[in-house]
């Protein structure tokens, strides 16, 4: 039986991080916990899809929220902690999986069998990918990129003491423009296999 390996993937918007995560999960033969699956799971716990789409992976508005003991009125924060609890629980179950975003690199920081990956990309490549996927102008793509990356950074840095994208918080930081999506997956899979072998030894 293969030993548990968890891959967390942080990503810049348009870097192909999600696609890399999807292909990696497929080739590892494990589940991919991304927006779709996490939303589906959350609906089983009483959260509507509308709430998830509106508040998931969104930064806390510090001026509109307040904390009392362990309680916060911020919906974003409550939802984030629900996601973190779910990621922790899944990790504790012994299941191998790939998870996209949701501060998983920080949430699972104390586990030994986790490969923390950050996927970045060159601006022109990211812009091109966004234009293709969302069918928008380059200007709009740049706007979307800036907004999404800002949101992801604020979200991550609110919970984590290591900044989003800072290499010290990850085991591998990969530039998808260098090798492309497929070969980036090959590279990551090679690391996963080495981790498996190391565990077996």
């Amino acid at each position: 039986m293969k030993k548990q390996i968890i891959v967390t993937i942080g990503r810049e918007f348009g870097s192909g991080g999600h696609e890399i995560a999807r292909l990696l999960a497929e080739r590892m033969g494990v589940k991919l916990y991304d927006k779709e699956l996490l939303y589906e799971l959350a609906t089983h716990h009483g959260y509507s899809e509308e709430v998830m789409r509106r508040y998931d992976e969104r930064p806390v508005n510090v001026l509109a929220s307040r904390r009392v003991r362990d309680f916060s009125n911020s919906i974003e924060e409550n939802l984030a902690h629900k996601m973190f609890a779910f990621i922790r629980k899944t990790a504790e179950s012994g299941e191998s999986f790939v998870v996209v975003g949701r501060c998983a690199d920080y949430v699972l920081r104390e586990r030994g069998n986790v490969l923390r990956v950050f996927v970045r990309g060159e601006r022109k490549d990211k812009e091109k990918r966004i234009c293709e996927i969302y069918n928008v102008s380059p200007r709009k793509a740049l706007e979307m990129m800036k907004r999404s990356d800002k949101m992801r950074k604020l979200y991550h840095d609110y919970y984590s003491d290591i900044k989003w994208g800072d290499t010290r918080g990850y085991d591998i930081s990969i530039n998808s423009s260098l090798l492309g999506v497929e070969k980036s997956v090959d590279a990551l899979l090679a690391v996963v296999n080495l981790m498996q072998k190391q565990d077996e030894e």
């Binding site: 959350a42 716990h45 009483g46 959260y47 509507s48 709430v51 508040y55 009125n73 919906i75 409550n78 939802l79 902690h81 629900k82």
Partner: peptide
């Protein structure tokens, strides 16, 4: 909110 009923 923790129980799935967010009050914004």
């Amino acid at each position: 909110a923790k129980e799935g009923h967010p009050i914004g």
